[in-house]
């Protein structure tokens, strides 16, 4: 039996009645000629936390970076198949990647605050997006939502790099929130943090899931089990030609994945027999 306890939230609806934010159909992603991920099908539920787990190098980040078209910035990176955002082709000709990234925020593995004041870090996103309104209020609201306001309200003019790693990461979450996105993508947001800072971020994610759709990549299975509604398990497979591709093995409610996986490979992975 799996040795991971599932304390995480129940998925509120069945996959059939899900009102998907993203619909991924037969997605493959290429880096030049190399097909890094092959044939992914998954749905991202509205205001749910979806976790992507799997051994490293199986293409989790690659898939995640398709959701906000960050892969556009890598020369030679190219998706095939479709990703729909509320039914609209995310890679359609008329779609502006800048607008995509404004609606779909991202938090990175290593906290990357700008070398500016805490205030300016938050204000930057709204400013470049031409948001009108009182910036002080926007900053306070974003920091409050990211559970950082009480810790930094007295030192908003201080350089963001003087914060601890965990605070920096919450600042990056606040920075993403400030542009009022619908989705927040997180690529191993806790892997550079200590356990206490990790717990804070996990609590924050649960809180944010009331208002935002969250997709999180994690190599920490317990984390996926604790916070996510649904889990996608990826692995890497070698095809007949001897080339490694990332594959989606199983996508289901988190409780199912961790207690009663339908695929042997999933079970092996979560019980620690593999990966």
């Amino acid at each position: 039996m799996p040795n991971v306890t599932v304390r995480g939230p129940e998925a509120p609806r069945t996959i059939e009645s899900l009102d998907p934010v993203f619909t991924v159909k037969n997605l493959s992603v290429f880096y030049g000629d190399y097909e890094a991920v092959r044939g992914v099908d998954m749905l991202i539920g509205n205001r749910e936390i979806t976790a992507m787990i799997g051994p490293s190098g199986c293409g989790k980040s690659t898939v995640l970076r398709c959701f906000n078209r960050m892969n556009d910035l890598i020369p030679g990176a190219r998706p095939a198949g479709t990703i729909q955002y509320h039914g609209e082709d995310l890679y359609g000709d008329h779609v502006d990647p800048i607008e995509v990234r404004r609606r779909i925020g991202m938090v990175f593995q290593k906290p990357n605050p700008f070398p500016k004041s805490i205030y300016d870090n938050i204000a930057y996103g709204p400013k470049v997006n031409g948001v009108k309104g009182k910036m002080d209020d926007i900053v306070e609201e974003a920091l409050t939502k990211a559970a950082l306001w009480d810790e930094v309200k007295g030192k908003l003019k201080q350089n963001a790099l003087s914060l601890s790693g965990g605070q920096q990461q919450r600042l990056c979450i606040a920075r993403a929130i400030a542009v009022k996105p619908e989705v927040i993508l997180m690529d191993e947001p806790c892997s550079a943090l200590d356990p206490i800072a990790t717990t804070k971020i996990e609590d924050l994610m649960q809180e944010l899931a009331h208002d935002y759709t969250i997709v999180i990549v994690t190599h920490n299975m317990q984390q996926a089990a604790r916070v996510s509604h649904r889990t996608a398990f990826f692995t890497a497979e070698v095809d007949d030609a001897g080339v490694r591709h990332g594959r989606l093995v199983e996508f289901d409610e988190t409780s199912r994945i961790f207690t009663n996986p339908s695929d042997k490979r999933t079970e092996d992975y979560i019980t620690g027999r593999f990966g």
Binding site: M70, I98, R101, R102, F108, N112, F114, Y124, V128, N129
Partner: peptide
Amino acid sequence: VPPSIREGSLALGATQWQTISRQVLPA
């Protein structure tokens, strides 16, 4: 200037020119 600064800016919906003129160049 670390690439993570450019990524952070672009991920917020900044254009490439905004990223360069407001983050990369000052740094």
